[in-house]
């Protein structure tokens, strides 16, 4: 009796907690409302299954608990029931998988008009690089990283000369413009994670990963590192500001290009090694 009641209490408590809990996802600031919707679908399906299974169990415990003279029913299997349950489960799974795969397809298909922004992670800070006037990012190589060239750009690549370098500072993005975040790491695995954007992806040293999204809300959002990257992991934070187009242009105007950065130091630095 007590056991059955407690099982019911677990279900009721969980459902009540779900609806009353003040802990819920942050207000979304990107186009990935699809992901939130898929989560909602999944919550409903799994919630119903959880409640059904545990309540049924509570009923069994109550109704078929041992009393003097009780005997169990003899039933080794029931083909029809099992088939029926299997098919129902299959349908439920498909109902979650289909929207999931559909949205994943969108997630991995970067729109053609997305502007590229590079995020460069290192222990334990975030830097960024934006394509300059030409709209193209120059080539880079971890081997070229020096204090003067913190992101390892190839000095002889013309595409890279006008790239804007934002070292260990905030990133600004224009609202409603799709961006393709190119993710690069100089040392260990990191993960560029802004909870409000929903999207995230690991950054792997030695290769460039990416994801895309469209910011839909102006404001300041916190960047967290979501892949363990050593003892400073929890303190690897940054800020992304989503700006109106005017504010964004003003910010871009304040940034330095790669050519400007190296040009100011060319006098002190010797001729860099041949690329």
């Amino acid at each position: 009796m007590v056991v059955a009641l407690l099982l019911v209490a677990v279900v009721v408590g969980s459902v009540v907690f779900h609806f009353l809990s003040p802990w819920w996802w942050t207000p979304i600031a990107s186009n990935w409302a699809y992901i939130d919707n898929t989560i909602i679908v999944t919550f409903w399906i799994t919630g119903v299954v959880f409640a059904a299974v545990v309540l049924f169990m509570a009923y069994c415990v109550f109704r078929f608990r041992h009393r003097e003279g009780n005997t169990a029913h003899y039933e080794p299997e029931n083909k029809r029931l099992e088939t029926w349950l299997t098919v129902a489960t299959g349908i439920g799974v498909a109902a979650m998988l289909a929207p999931g795969l559909f949205v994943w397809h969108q997630f991995v298909t970067v729109p053609a008009d997305a502007t590229e922004v590079e995020v460069v992670a290192q222990q334990w800070q975030w830097s960024y690089r934006l394509p300059g006037q030409d709209g193209k990012l120059g080539l880079s190589d971890t081997r070229l990283v020096t204090p003067e060239n913190p992101l390892g750009l190839k000095p002889d690549d013309p595409n890279g000369q006008d790239d804007l370098i934002v070292e260990a500072a905030d990133l600004h993005l224009p609202i409603d413009k799709p961006v393709k975040m190119l993710l690069r790491s100089l040392d260990v695995l990191h993960d560029f994670y802004v909870p409000e954007f929903r999207a995230k992806m690991d950054m792997v040293p030695g290769s460039v990963t990416y994801f895309w999204f469209t910011p839909t809300r102006t404001g300041s959002f916190e960047v967290l590192c979501a892949e363990l990257c050593g003892q400073g992991h929890a303190f690897m934070r940054g800020i992304v500001m989503v700006d109106t187009p005017e504010d964004y242009l003003a910010w871009v105007g304040e940034q330095q290009t790669f050519a400007q950065l190296t040009g100011t130091q060319q006098t002190s630095a010797a001729e860099p090694t041949a690329p």
Partner: peptide, 14 residues
């Protein structure tokens, strides 16, 4: 089932 469903895993992973 949340985490196995690739796109739902994106915000929830880690």
């Amino acid at each position: 089932l949340f985490l196995g469903n690739v796109v739902v895993d994106v915000p929830l992973s880690d």
